[in-house]
């Protein structure tokens, strides 16, 4: 690990001012410290943003939540309101990592964690995300757990967060404090597809600090599910966060949200499937047609074609469960 200086910021102003070139914000450190130890991240300066008062979950006037960026995953999943009113978010957080990691990891850091693609983590091998222009060995190499949707010639990485999948389904917004002031980014715009610049995971600019996540009220049944090889403590092969409302039980779909994890460079909001379902009768057949419509765009690689039926089945299974729990 490269030597670095450490600064504990007391205010947002201090933090942003301190985050000059070569610096990185430190939240819980669960991903950053790991990457520094691997030599993937080499900040010369760490600006600790765990003590800015961003560790609270507040109720908004509309019934939604404002979740501070420094709230730990453990505290988020323990929150009574989250558990009762946003079960898909609690479930997503609890499905991720381990109890120990969730106690360190923060909401802001979780959103900004980097891909677990093995080539990205191995500094002795090329990777366009780590070293732009060096190549993507994953495309022809080991990619069983990489993207089937939205990938590019230069990058087939997936975003590893479970929580982000739930936030994508929740139509959340991200509050960002930057060098030019504060702004709000719709959650769907935060993470990018790799395109020709896979080194950029998000739309954030240098110095940008996530201060909070805004979550509007949900008020419909929701669920997060995750398929994985190991029964716990494993990244998703495919995950889904979904919410569904019908006019009457078994009737017409009036609102639906579907987001997939483990399939793309960002949490994948299944807009096409949602469009198909809105106004349709809630049935297994409709869910299947919607899932297939969404996955028409899938371009599986040599060894990850299984993710297409897996995503399809998860959509059908999860939506069916929301209709008839």
């Amino acid at each position: 690990m490269r030597p670095f200086t450490y600064a504990r910021a007391a205010t947002e102003d201090e933090a942003v001012a301190a985050c000059t070139d070569g610096a990185a914000y430190l939240g819980g450190g669960t991903n950053l410290v790991d990457l520094m130890r691997l030599g993937v991240a080499e900040p010369a300066r760490l600006v600790d943003v765990a003590h800015l008062g961003h560790d609270r979950i507040e109720r908004r006037a509309d019934g939604g939540l404002r979740i501070g960026a420094a709230v730990t995953n453990g505290d988020l999943a323990a929150d009574r309101t989250v558990r009762a009113e946003f079960p898909l978010l609690a479930q997503a957080v609890l499905a991720g990592a381990s109890g120990q990691i969730r106690n360190l990891a923060t909401v802001g850091g979780n959103l900004l964690q980097r891909t677990r693609c093995a080539y990205f983590q191995d500094v002795t091998k090329p990777c366009n995300k780590r070293e732009p222009g060096s190549g993507c060995p994953a495309r022809e190499g080991e990619h069983r757990n990489l993207a089937i949707l939205g990938h590019s010639a230069g990058c087939v990485a997936t975003h590893p967060s479970d929580m982000a999948v739930a936030l994508a389904a929740l139509d959340a917004e991200v509050r960002v404090r930057g060098r030019e002031g504060t702004r709000t980014i719709p959650f769907g715009d935060l993470h990018r597809l790799p395109g020709t610049a896979p080194e950029r995971d998000t739309c954030l600019e240098p110095g940008d600090l996530i201060t909070a996540v805004e979550v509007p009220p949900l008020r419909m049944p929701s669920r997060f599910r995750k398929a994985r090889e190991r029964a716990s403590f494993a990244f998703a092969l495919v995950s889904i966060a979904a919410a569904l409302r019908t006019d009457v039980p078994g009737g017409t779909v009036t609102d639906v949200r579907i987001a997939l994890g483990g399939v793309a460079h960002r949490p994948w909001r299944a807009r096409r499937a949602e469009e198909r379902l809105r106004g349709a009768r809630a049935s297994g057949e409709a869910f299947l047609r919607a899932a297939e419509a969404e996955l028409e765009a899938a371009e599986p690689l040599r060894d990850n074609g299984y993710k297409v039926p897996l995503a399809r089945n998860l959509i059908v299974r999860t939506l069916s469960g929301l209709v008839a729990p």
């Binding site: 450490y6 450190g29 669960t30 410290v33 765990a50 381990s98 106690n103 360190l104």
Partner: peptide
């Protein structure tokens, strides 16, 4: 009071 992975926690923080 909470369980954490001490390997991921920087002492300085």
């Amino acid at each position: 009071g909470r369980r954490v992975n001490a390997c991921l926690a920087l002492a300085v923080a």
